[in-house]
């Protein structure tokens, strides 16, 4: 009863061939992790040709141990950024969890298992505070976490009175994450293994469960997600709680890595975790990206640190290079978001 389909000029126009640049845009749109993978490969080739020691198992093992903490924080950060939020309190939550766990366990006050669980529990509570302020009060994540960044940092400093807790005063389990074991010529720490497991678990959940789909949908278009029957607030809260738990785990890894619990540790952690996520191709506007990209992004940051230091250049060049990479990554993201049919 309705008119037959007519091919219009508009339709024919749409069928024109894509230029090579447009095809690249489409490939990057479909596989956002390609760019960080390329950067990682190029960095590896360049740095190992400047100084062959860069590619040695010893040096690469060290890179892995160095990026473990940032890599862990970046997992929580990825979840939050996927929902179109940002977590400026990631490092502060980690410090608070670490100092409370270490402070309570100091001098045999608590068994190691309990201390680890307290660390994770503190992270979850901090995530609950962030999540409740975002979902119940309706504040923007940037403002919420800017506030809690100061609150958590101050509480950690007030609690510890600025004092560190040395590894020797802590139960063995808290330092366990820093222990290393040989894998071929490499030396892998327990912390690195934990971070690997974390990536597998969260990566699986994001890619293969309905929860993962909903995280993407909420970040992509909140209203569309709500109209599709997704309980947006519940998904957001679950993201902040999970991120908090991840930061609590990162605190444990940090104690092992640093050999102490210091309230002044990882001051750059917030920005570095955001850097890893952004270089990894996850969009700051939410809804697109993947955890594998974040892993690549964290490794890129680690490669630059190790490679430029082995090349014998000033550390400021690393800061400069990473800054430029962030700008490039965001520019590429803006470009591929404009992909057309």
């Amino acid at each position: 009863m309705l008119g037959q389909e007519v091919t219009t000029a508009v339709e024919q126009f749409a069928q024109r061939r894509r230029s090579p640049l447009e095809r690249l845009q489409h490939v990057l749109h479909a596989h956002p992790s390609i760019s960080p993978l390329l950067v990682l490969i190029i960095a590896f080739v360049v740095f190992s040709s400047i100084n062959p020691r860069f590619a040695s198992p010893n040096s690469l093992s060290l890179v892995l141990q160095q990026v473990a903490v940032i890599g862990a924080l970046a997992v929580g950060q990825t979840l939050v950024i996927l929902t179109a939020g940002i977590d400026l309190s990631a490092g502060a939550v980690t410090i608070l969890a670490m100092m409370l766990a270490a402070g309570l366990a100091e001098g045999g006050g608590l068994p190691g298992v309990v201390a680890v669980l307290i660390g994770i529990g503190v992270g979850v509570l901090a995530g609950l505070a962030n999540g409740a302020l975002v979902t119940r009060v309706g504040l923007p994540p940037f403002i919420v976490t800017l506030g809690t960044l100061s609150v958590f940092t101050a509480v950690a400093l007030l609690y510890t009175k600025g004092q560190s807790v040395q590894a020797t005063d802590l139960p063995g389990l808290l330092n366990w994450t820093g222990e290393t074991f040989p894998v071929g010529d490499f030396r892998i720490s327990v912390g690195v293994v934990l971070v690997g497991v974390l990536y597998l678990l969260v990566g699986f959940a994001l890619a293969n469960t309905a929860w993962g789909r909903h995280v993407y949908a909420v970040g992509d278009d909140k209203e569309a997600a709500r109209l599709a029957g997704i309980r947006v607030d519940r998904v957001l809260l679950s993201v902040y709680l999970t991120a908090g738990a991840v930061y609590g785990l990162a605190a444990w890894i940090l104690i092992g890595r640093a050999g102490a619990a210091s309230p002044n540790a990882i001051t750059d952690a917030n920005l570095e975790s955001i850097t890893a996520v952004v270089i990894g191709g996850t969009s700051l506007f939410g809804g697109r990206g993947a955890l594998v990209g974040t892993l690549l992004g964290a490794l890129i940051v680690g490669f630059f640190r190790s490679g430029l230091s082995l090349a014998g250049v000033d550390d400021q060049y690393r800061v400069l290079a990473v800054g430029l990479l962030v700008l490039l990554a965001v520019t590429v993201d803006q470009w591929i978001r404009k992909v057309k049919a």
Binding site: Y216, A217, A224, L227, A228, G287
Partner: peptide, 23 residues
Amino acid sequence: YQTLAVAPALDIAANLYLGRERH
């Protein structure tokens, strides 16, 4: 709804089953 209630970055199949994913 008048405002197209689809999530732009998700694919067609994901949008069709959004909020009703099958296990």
